[in-house]
Design a protein around this nucleic acid. Structure first.
Length: 581
DNA sequence: TTAGGGTTAG
C-alpha cells in the first residue's frame, strides 16, 4: 500500500492558522504495527489541539464593541434579552417561564422557539410548550400550551404558529402539527401559505398523501393559490408515499408552471427512487434534469453519488464524483462526504487524500459521517493505526463511533499488537453513550493480557466480571499473579474470588512465590494468608512448606500463627494487624 | 420574525 500521499499532508493545520483547523490524522506515523507512544502522550497531544476558553476570550477583538452596543439599548430591552437567554439556558423551562414570562413579549417567545427548533431541542420545546408534559398526546399538549401561555400572560400569534408548525414538521411530529394548525384556526387566525406548507411538510414524513391532497384542496378553497414551495412539498409527500407516478405528473406540472428551474424537485424524486432501490430510474431523472438545462449542484450529485455507493456501483460513483470535481467548485460537508465515500469504495487512495486536503483548505469540518467513511476505509486498506488515529480525532471532536466500527478496529489493533490503542478504542466506546455488547469486555481482556497491560486488564475484570467467562478470568488471574504489579495481587485475588471464581492452589502458590522473591512485601503475604483463611481456603502442604521454608523472611512466629488454625486470634497477630493492616 | 432538497449502514 502506497501511503506517501498521507505523509505529504503532515502538519497541514499548522500552516493554516484557521479558527477550526481540520485535524485529520494526517501524520507521518503511519505504520501497520503498534505505535510506541504511550497513552499519556496521546492525551497531551489531544489537549494541545483543543483551544482553551482563555485562548478564545483573549483573542476576541469584538468584545469591546459588544459592550458599547449594549449600553445603547434601553433597560427594558436588555431585560428582555436577558430573559430570553435565561429561558434558553434554563434546565427548568416551566419555572423559568413562570419567573420571566412577565418580561417576555410574543416575539421573544418566537426567538426562543426558533432557537430550540434550530438546535433540535424537541424535548425542551415541548417542555416550553407543555410545561413538562410528555412528548406524546399532541392534542392535550396543545391545550396545555394555551394554559401555559395564558398563565404567563402571553398569546400565540400567527407567526408563532408558523414557527411552531415548521418545527413540528421538521421533527416528524405530524399529529402535533395538525393539532396546532386546528388550534390556530380555533383561535381565529386564518392559516396563510406558510402554515399550509409546514403542515403539508409534516404529512410528507408519513407519506400521508390523502390528507395532503385534502389540505391542498382546503387551501385552494380558502382562496390561496399553491405556489412553488407548496407544490414542491406536495411532490415530497408523493415521493415519501412512494407514489412515483403521481410524483412524475406533479414534476411535469411544476415544470409547466416554471417551478422546476432549480434541482430541488428533481432531487426529491431521485432520492426517493434511489432509496426504494430504483437506481436506474433515479439515474434517468438525473439525466433528464441535465438535458433540461437545470443546473445541477451539490444536492443532486450528492444524492446520485451516495445512491451509487449504496447500490455497489462504485466505478459509477467515482466517475460522478470526478465529474462534480471537474465542473463545480462549491463544496460543503455533505458533498465532500459523498465524494470521499465514492473514492473510498473505489479504492482511490490518491483521490481520498486529495479530497481530505481540499476539505482542509476550504475549512470544511469533518462530521460523524466523514470520520465513519474514513475509518472504514482505512480498516479496509489495513491501515489500522491510521484508522485508530482517525477514530481518536473523531472522539475528541465529540462524535461517538458506532459499536461495530469499534469492534472491528479493536480486533485488528489486537492482531497487530497495538494493545494500548485497542484499549483506547474500548474506552472510547465505554465512555460514550452507546451501548456496548457484553462480549466486548472479554475481547479487550484477551488483548490486554497479550499486551501485558495487566493493570488495565484488572480494571476491565473488576468492572465487568459478570460478562467475562471463567476461562478468561482464570487466564487473567494467572497472568496477573505471575507478572502484574505485586501491590495489586491481593486485590486481584479478592476481585476474582468475589466474582465467583475459586482460587486454586497453583494460583495461590504463584502469589506466595512472588512474595518470597520480594520479602519487603511480607505484609502483603500475611494479609493474603489471613484473608484466605477468612474465606475458608485451606493452604495445601506444598505451599505451606514453601512458606515455612522461607519463614525467616516474614517472621517465624507470625507465619506459624497464621498457618495454625488454633491461634487465629493471638495477641501477636492482632497487634501486627493493627499496625500494618 | 413563520414554508421545500443531499451524506454512514459487509
Amino acid at each position: 500500500m502506497e501511503v506517501s500521499p498521507i505523509s505529504t499532508c503532515t502538519g497541514f493545520h499548522h500552516i493554516h492558522p484557521r479558527a477550526t483547523p481540520l485535524s485529520f490524522p494526517l501524520t507521518p506515523r503511519i505504520s501497520t504495527t503498534s505505535s510506541s507512544r504511550g497513552r499519556g502522550s496521546r492525551r497531551s497531544s489531544a489537549a494541545a489541539a483543543t483551544p482553551t476558553l482563555v485562548d478564545i476570550s483573549c483573542n476576541d477583538p469584538q468584545n469591546g464593541c459588544a459592550v458599547d452596543a449594549q449600553r445603547r439599548h434601553s433597560k427594558a430591552y436588555l431585560a428582555r434579552k436577558n430573559a430570553i437567554l435565561q429561558v434558553q439556558q434554563s434546565p427548568h423551562l416551566d419555572s423559568a417561564l413562570q419567573r420571566l414570562g412577565g418580561v417576555l413579549k410574543v416575539q421573544d417567545l418566537n426567538v426562543i422557539l426558533r432557537n430550540f427548533g434550530q438546535q433540535r431541542r424537541w424535548q425542551d420545546l415541548s417542555q416550553l410548550l407543555a410545561g413538562g408534559m410528555k412528548v406524546k398526546d399532541g392534542y392535550s399538549k396543545a391545550l396545555e400550551l394555551v394554559q401555559e401561555l395564558n398563565y404567563n400572560g402571553l398569546q400565540m400569534d400567527s407567526v408563532m404558529y408558523g414557527t411552531l408548525l415548521a418545527v413540528c414538521a421538521s421533527n416528524n411530529r405530524c399529529e402535533e402539527a395538525q393539532s396546532y394548525f386546528n388550534q390556530m384556526k380555533d383561535e381565529g387566525h386564518s392559516p396563510n401559505i406558510y402554515h399550509y406548507s409546514s403542515l403539508l411538510n409534516a404529512y410528507a414524513s408519513g407519506g400521508n398523501y390523502k390528507k395532503a391532497e385534502e389540505l391542498v384542496q382546503d387551501m385552494k378553497s380558502s382562496g390561496l393559490v399553491p405556489n412553488k414551495v407548496m407544490l414542491t412539498t406536495q411532490l415530497k409527500v408523493y415521493v415519501r408515499g412512494r407514489l412515483f407516478e403521481k410524483s412524475r405528473d406533479l414534476l411535469v406540472e411544476l415544470d409547466t408552471l416554471g417551478f422546476a428551474k432549480d434541482e430541488m424537485p428533481y432531487c426529491l424524486l431521485m432520492d426517493g427512487l434511489a432509496k426504494t432501490g430504483c437506481i436506474d430510474e433515479a439515474r434517468s431523472v438525473f439525466n433528464e434534469m441535465k438535458e433540461k438545462c437545470v443546473k445541477p449542484g451539490g444536492y443532486s450529485y450528492s444524492i446520485m453519488i451516495s445512491s451509487f455507493c449504496r447500490g455497489g456501483l462504485f466505478e459509477e460513483a467515482k466517475e460522478l464524483a470526478e465529474e462534480f470535481e471537474a465542473k463545480y467548485d462549491k463544496y460543503d460537508v455533505a458533498i465532500s462526504n459523498a465524494i470521499l465515500c465514492a473514492y473510498c469504495r473505489a479504492g482511490e487512495m490518491e483521490s481520498v487524500m486529495r479530497t481530505m486536503r481540499k476539505m482542509d483548505e476550504l475549512a470544511i469540518s469533518p462530521d460523524y459521517n466523514t470520520f465513519h467513511i474514513l475509518i472504514k476505509y482505512f480498516c479496509k486498506e489495513k491501515l489500522y493505526m491510521l484508522a485508530y488515529q482517525t477514530m481518536e480525532d473523531m472522539y475528541r471532536k465529540g462524535h461517538q463511533p458506532a459499536e461495530e466500527l469499534c469492534s472491528s478496529l479493536l480486533f485488528h489493533l489486537g492482531k497487530i499488537k497495538a494493545h494500548s490503542e485497542a484499549f483506547s478504542v474500548y474506552s472510547m466506546l465505554k465512555y460514550s453513550k452507546r451501548t456496548m455488547c457484553k462480549a466486548f469486555h472479554e475481547k479487550i481482556l484477551h488483548i490486554l493480557i497479550a499486551g501485558k497491560l495487566l493493570k488495565d486488564a484488572y480494571v476491565v475484570v473488576k468492572d465487568n466480571a459478570k460478562f467475562i467467562s471463567s476461562a478468561a478470568i482464570k487466564k487473567f488471574a494467572k497472568s496477573f499473579v505471575k507478572l502484574g504489579n505485586i501491590n495489586l495481587i491481593n486485590d486481584v485475588l479478592k476481585v476474582i474470588h468475589g466474582s465467583g471464581y475459586k482460587i486454586d492452589q497453583r494460583l495461590f502458590q504463584m502469589a506466595v512465590s512472588r512474595y518470597i522473591a520480594q520479602p519487603e512485601k511480607k505484609d502483603l503475604l500475611l494479609q493474603l494468608l489471613l484473608w484466605m483463611r477468612g474465606q475458608g481456603y485451606v493452604v495445601d502442604s506444598s505451599t505451606r512448606n514453601l512458606i515455612l521454608k522461607n519463614g525467616h523472611l516474614f517472621g517465624q512466629q507470625l507465619i506459624a500463627e497464621i498457618l495454625s488454625k488454633k491461634h487465629m486470634r493471638s495477641k501477636a497477630l492482632k497487634s501486627h494487624w493493627m499496625t500494618n493492616g
